[in-house]
Structure formats: C-alpha cells, structure tokens
Design a protein around this nucleic acid. Structure first.
Lengths: 152, 152
DNA sequence: ATAGGGCCTCCCATCATTGGAAGGTCAAGG
DNA sequence: CCTTGACCTTCCAATGATGGGAGGCCCTAT
C-alpha cells in the first residue's frame, strides 16, 4: 500500500491550494497525479515535497516558467550551480527593477502629498498635477522615470 | 467647427494608445466619444486633457477604479482636498505594502545567493532551500568530504 | 438510506494591456 | 476613376496566478 494522500491533504501539507494543484497539473508544471478508480487524484510524499518546493519558489516571486526550470534543475543530477544562479539572478534583477518602479511611484506620490492640505477645501495639488503636470505650483524638483518634473 | 481629432491623434497627444482609449470607453471610464458619419471617434482638446490625466494617474500606479474616482473628484466642484487624499492615501499604503513584499523577496534571495558558488558544481543552497527551508540554511563551516567548503 | 463533505470537471472573473483578423473609410496620386 | 496605404471599426483572444461557483460523483457516518 502506497502512502498516498488526497488532493486536499496534499494542499494543506504543501500550502498550495487544491485549485492550484489541479492548475499546475493542467499547465504541466507537475506531472499528472495517479488516480483512484473513481478518479480522485493521489499524492505521494515526494509529490508533496515538490509542491512545497513550488510554493516556496512562488513565495520568492518566481514565475511558473522559472519554477519549471528550477524543478528541472532540482531533479537533474548534471546541473551546475551556475545554472541555478542564472535563473535566480534574472529574477533578482526583475525584482529590483520592480522595486525601483514602485519606489519612484511612492516618491512622486509623497511629493504630491506635501502640498495637499487634507481639509475641506477643493484645492488639491494632486488633482492639479494629474490634470497638468507642467503647471508650476511648487518648484520642488523630482527626477522621475515617468517624466514628471513638477510634482505638487 | 469643433476642433476635433481622430483617435490616433488623441492617442499620440495623450500618450494613451488608441486600443486603450477604446477600452476605457467600453468600461465607461470615459464617456463615449462623438462619431463622424462614418463611425470614426472624435476627440476634443478637453477629451485629450482627460486622457492625459488618466495616463498620469496610471503612471503613478492608480487602478482604473481609483482613476474613475479621481476623475469624478476632478470634475466635481464640491470636492474636498480630503476626498482626494483618501484615494491617494489608500494607494500609497498599497504601494508601500507591495514595496515591502518585494524587498522581503529580494532579501531572502540575496541571502541564498551568499552561499552560492556560481560554478560547475551541482551543490546549490538555493535549490536546497526551496526543497526544504527547515534545513540549516548556509552550512558554510561544515566540512566537505572532498575537503571543499560546501558552499552553494 | 440519507446527509455531509470532499472530490471531480468545466466555465468564468480578475487586472491592464496587447495582439490579430476581417472589414470599412479616407486622402492622395496615377 | 481606381488603386494604394494609412487609418478606422468591431470582435475575439491571450497574458499570469488565482479564486469562485455550478452541477455531479464518491465515500463515510449516522
């Protein structure tokens, strides 16, 4: 008797929802699970280990494509540290780019907030700026990747 | 004779693609444009101003729902600065949360990189960690049977 | 035997954006 | 007048990861 688990058990053991396990099977990130006579999917501890691998990689923000590659490397005896580095490094570069993008949004928004009264008056530099970024209300300069020179 | 422009002109003047202008009309973010006899959309300078507003807000990462609200406030004489602040503040909170999330991914990934040799060897703490996060993270000081410091 | 809960498949929605296909319209030049 | 090419129209689909729900089967406990 194999030690097998239902999809619900695999889900709670791995942290991957049953929905997503079926999804990962459909997109062929994981192999199709064995089935009972009645069609229920069965998962071995090794399968659950793989699912946990996937969930951890997702937590680090890896895309499914990246994870597919990482899984291949994980199970490939001839892999090299370099191979893994390449995948992880590409992701790190993307993460840092995303972080920079978000920070420039935050910076621009914070600048707008500086001039905002936050009261009952209708005047609002935030709207003014969105309506016309060229209008010089406050000569506070901010370098911005989106080309906003004048920010609130 | 009104000063009107085709959708292509409005697109290049506003920075919003023609595709997206039609899309914004369909989802009712903007009002349906006037049409020529032959069905071409026509845009006034005011329309283009609105489109630029939208593009700037998108550049700051506002969702379409947020922008819809901001547009209403922009055109609403009875708005208060507070109203705008509420929308912008909510977005800022979300941006900061996203930034924190990404930074925790970056930190975790950088930690894994510390132990990675980036060479031809198959050992890799990145994969090890994904496979089992409970395993002692970076056993740098553990002796290797070949005398190598077991890194990556 | 019946109720409940878990499982199955299939479809749809998100969010903003892009792409393509198939066809109509317009201006300029031969 | 007719072709050409740029522009416009609508509709449909896909992206990526995930969730929700409907309708139906399976298994176990009462």
């Amino acid at each position: 008797m194999k030690h097998t688990n239902t999809i619900g058990e695999a889900a709670s053991a791995s942290g991957v929802s049953a929905k997503m396990i079926r999804h990962y099977e459909k997109i062929e990130l994981i192999e199709a699970a064995e089935r009972t006579n009645s069609g229920y999917r069965l998962y071995t501890p090794a399968d659950i280990h793989t699912l946990r691998f996937i969930r951890r990689a997702r937590n680090l923000g890896f895309s499914v494509d990246d994870i597919s590659e990482l899984l291949d490397l994980w199970k490939n005896d001839t892999r090299t540290s370099k191979d893994v580095r390449r995948v992880a490094d590409g992701h790190l570069v993307a993460l840092r780019a995303k972080a920079a993008e978000i920070h420039s949004m935050i910076d621009a928004l914070e600048q707008l907030f500086d001039g905002c009264t936050n009261d009952e008056r209708p005047d609002c530099p935030i709207l003014d700026d969105l309506a016309d970024a060229a209008k010089p209300a406050r000569p506070k300069q901010v370098g911005h990747k989106f080309g906003f020179e004048r920010v609130c």
